[in-house]
């Protein structure tokens, strides 16, 4: 066991735990945001650099601070380690920098993007970014391509988190896609436009933190915040059968895996469950799913207006007089003072 202190909160965790997972055990606001880490995927993480934290004390044995900010998702804790996340202005600045980098070549086409409303990049930008961008050059663009008949890849939106590559590596049979080229023109692609055709390929859609991989059976059907998530299961011979149905009225518009509070899929589901079973009668309904993150989905359906108002009032009090708060820019996060 190792004792680690994150933003002044001490917790004892098993050896080999990463700083990120230790922070998740503590929970709350001190958990660094992630874009590329995924708890169910081995060797994921380390790429996006949003979870950077400062290690102000290495360990009990070697108390020297680490010279550079480290990726909390890939750094294991040492006994006596002290970590600063929200308490370090340096870390917050670096994170704001990463957000700016991620958005530099992102098209920001949220108004026409299916992911809007449940997009990790949107949340990240609202919570950790700054207003406006300083990037003024042509953004990189790619053609949309279909990888398989159910999935569309819109590389322009991709932030190269490598999650789908790892999913294809670890969840599906036979690796048929990866990264081509390098630097800011690298792209996710299949081997010479091969179709991705296997029973679990749909999980790539769920792990995509942005709108780069979208479900063609759901594209442009509805904004996600008009749909209501309901947990359901069925006896599936291929997968766990534990899914989330997204209803609009009586109609199931799409089926996804169940994501935890960090937006990471809990159980992989097969393509039959995802694409073929879109009738309520196919499923045993468990009840409405609560989306805990500060997304528009929860604001629309679950948080009462009263609670929302209380949050805004509380935030308004903590701001200098005359400062306007607007919904959408992290308004639901009491810790965000931008």
């Amino acid at each position: 066991m190792a004792k680690v202190t994150i933003d002044g909160i001490t917790i004892e965790v098993p050896d080999g735990t990463t700083i990120l997972n230790a922070a998740r055990m503590i929970g709350g606001d001190i958990v660094p945001p992630t874009m590329c880490y995924h708890s169910k995927l081995k060797t994921s993480g380390g790429y996006c650099r949003t979870c950077l934290v400062k290690v102000s004390k290495g360990s009990e044995k070697d108390p020297r601070p680490m010279p550079k900010p480290v990726a909390s998702c890939r750094t294991t804790v040492m006994d006596g380690m002290e970590v600063q996340n929200l308490l370090s202005p340096e870390v917050l600045e670096a994170r704001a920098g990463v957000v700016e980098f991620l958005l530099a070549n992102h098209p920001l086409d949220c108004p026409v993007c299916d992911q809007a409303g449940e997009c990790d990049l949107q949340n990240l930008a609202y919570e950790n970014g700054k207003m406006g961008t300083r990037y003024e050059f042509q953004k990189r663009e790619f053609e949309k391509i279909d990888i398989g008949d159910k999935i569309q890849l819109h590389m322009t939106r991709c932030i190269l988190c490598y999650r789908c590559v790892k999913t294809a590596d670890q969840v599906t049979d036979g690796r048929v896609h990866g990264v081509l080229n390098r630097g800011d023109v690298s792209e996710i692609s299949t081997y010479i436009q091969n179709a991705i055709d296997n029973d679990f390929s749909g999980n790539m859609i769920d792990v995509c933190p942005v709108g780069a991989l979208t479900d063609k059976t759901f594209r442009f059907k509805s904004r996600v915040w008009y749909t209501k998530p309901v947990d359901a299961h069925r006896d599936c011979p291929k997968c766990s059968g534990k899914v989330r149905l997204w209803y609009k009225g009586e109609e199931v518009l799409r089926v996804t895996g169940r994501k935890d509070q960090y937006g990471e899929v809990q159980d992989w589901i097969c393509n039959d469950c995802r694409f073929e079973k879109k009738k309520t009668s196919d499923w045993v309904i468990e009840g409405p799913a609560h989306i805990q993150r500060d997304s528009v989905i929860s604001a629309n359906h679950y948080e009462s207006l009263k609670a929302l108002k209380a949050t805004i009032d509380r935030q308004r009090k903590s701001l200098p007089h005359g400062h306007k708060t607007t919904l959408g820019h992290g308004a639901l996060d009491p810790n965000n003072t931008h």
């Binding site: 790429y47 996006c48 990463v98 980098f101 991620l102 630097g183 800011d184």
Partner: peptide, 13 residues
């Protein structure tokens, strides 16, 4: 190489 965001986006910028 384009693996991590600061270098991928920052160098071109």
């Amino acid at each position: 190489c384009g693996q991590c965001s600061p270098c991928r986006e920052g160098t071109g910028w």
